[in-house]
C-alpha cells in the first residue's frame, strides 16, 4: 500500500476544508489532483506530508504513520519555491539534502546534471528564474529516488521547454516505479501524463480512479437513438446518449462491434466521430456551474 487515507477531515477555524476524504493508492501510478483554487488540493497534500495537523482521520504512507519522519527517506514533496533559501546556492540545498538523506555527496552533482541545472548550481537561489527554481525543487525532490513523490503545481509558470522537461522526468520516475501525485491546473499536461485524475471540489474528491476516461471514445450519430440505446442495454452494455448521438468507450465496446449491432437491428448510422473525452471535458462537465458563472 502506497497511500491509505481514511476519513480525513480538516477544519480551519469553523470552515471545513477537507470533508471526509478516503482513498487508497495500492500500486505505482501517476495521480493528478485537479480542481479549482480552494478545492483543498494543497491542504490535502500538506496533511499527507504532516505539514498540517487535521481533526479527524488516518493517513498511512508506505505502511507507516504519516507523522513518522523516516517516511521521508522514500517520500518527497515538491512545494512552491518559497521553501528555498534565497541566500544559499542550489548546490548548498542539494548537499544538505544529501546529508539529511544519508546519501553520498556525489549524488548532488549527478542529480544536478540529470535535471540540467549544473550550470547554475553554484549561484545563489535569489538570482534564479522561476524555471530554475522549479528545477532545483525537482532536483531536491528526486535526490532520494523516492517511492512516492508529491508535486504541488510544479508546472505553473514554466515555459514549454521546462514543462516538457518536467513531464519527461516525472514519466521517467514513474517508469522506474515511483508513484507521482501531482496537482496542476494545466489539464493538457495532465492528459499527457496520466489517466488517473482525482477531481476535487469543496474539500471532497468528486471522482477518483477514472482509469478509462482518457482512452479513445467515439460518437455515433444514428437515426433511431432510443432503439439503438435499447439494443445495447439489452446486451448489458452501457452507452452514453446525448440527443441522437451515442458515445462509446473503445475498451468496452469496440467500434466494429457497435457498427455490426446497429446494422443487425437496421438502425441507420448517420455519422461516426473519433473522440477522446480528456481531463478538460470532464472538468467542464463536473464544474459546469463554476464555468457558467
Amino acid at each position: 500500500m502506497i497511500i491509505d487515507v481514511t476519513g480525513l477531515k480538516k477544519r480551519f477555524k469553523q470552515q471545513e476544508v477537507l470533508k471526509n476524504i478516503t482513498f487508497k493508492i495500492e500500486e505505482p501510478k501517476i495521480v493528478a489532483l485537479v480542481g479549482p483554487n480552494g478545492s483543498g488540493k494543497t491542504t490535502m497534500m500538506n496533511c499527507l506530508m504532516n505539514l498540517l495537523p487535521f481533526q479527524e482521520g488516518h493517513i498511512k504512507i508506505l505502511g507507516k504513520d504519516h507523522k513518522d519522519p523516516s517516511i521521508f527517506y522514500e517520500v518527497s514533496y515538491l512545494q512552491d519555491n518559497r521553501v528555498l533559501y534565497g541566500d544559499l546556492t542550489g548546490e548548498d540545498h542539494l548537499k544538505f539534502i544529501c546529508h539529511a538523506q544519508k546519501l553520498p555527496i556525489k549524488k548532488a552533482k549527478e542529480v544536478a546534471e540529470y535535471i540540467g541545472m549544473d550550470s547554475y548550481a553554484k549561484k545563489r537561489v535569489r538570482s534564479y528564474s522561476l524555471g530554475m527554481k522549479q528545477h532545483l525543487l525537482l532536483a531536491v525532490a528526486v535526490l532520494n529516488n523516492p517511492k512516492l513523490i508529491l508535486l504541488d503545481e510544479p508546472i505553473n509558470g514554466l515555459d514549454p521547454t521546462s514543462s516538457i522537461q518536467m513531464r519527461n522526468i516525472l514519466m521517467d520516475l514513474h517508469a522506474k516505479g515511483t508513484t507521482v501525485i501531482i496537482s496542476s491546473h494545466n489539464l493538457e499536461e495532465i492528459d499527457k501524463m496520466t489517466n488517473t485524475i482525482y477531481f476535487m471540489k469543496d474539500g471532497k474528491i468528486l471522482e477518483e480512479s477514472l482509469e478509462d476516461f482518457n482512452v479513445p471514445h467515439y460518437t455515433v450519430t444514428v437515426s433511431e437513438p432510443e432503439k439503438a440505446n435499447a439494443v445495447f442495454t439489452a446486451a448489458c452494455l452501457h452507452v452514453e446518449q446525448s440527443g441522437n448521438r451515442l458515445i462509446f468507450s473503445e475498451n468496452k465496446i469496440p467500434l466494429q462491434r457497435a457498427i455490426d449491432a446497429l446494422n443487425q437491428n437496421e438502425i441507420e448510422i448517420l455519422h461516426i466521430e473519433n473522440k477522446k473525452i480528456g481531463a478538460e471535458r470532464r472538468y467542464m462537465e463536473l464544474f459546469e456551474s463554476e464555468l457558467s458563472s
Binding site: P69, S76, Y77
Partner: peptide, 21 residues
C-alpha cells in the same frame, strides 16, 4: 527568520526531510 516559522518558508522543506522536529 530564514526558516519562516508559521508560514510557507524553508521550514516546510526541512520538515519534509527525515529529521525530527
Amino acid at each position: 527568520t530564514k526558516e519562516g516559522f508559521g508560514k510557507n518558508g524553508p521550514i516546510q522543506m526541512l520538515r519534509t526531510q527525515p529529521i525530527r522536529k
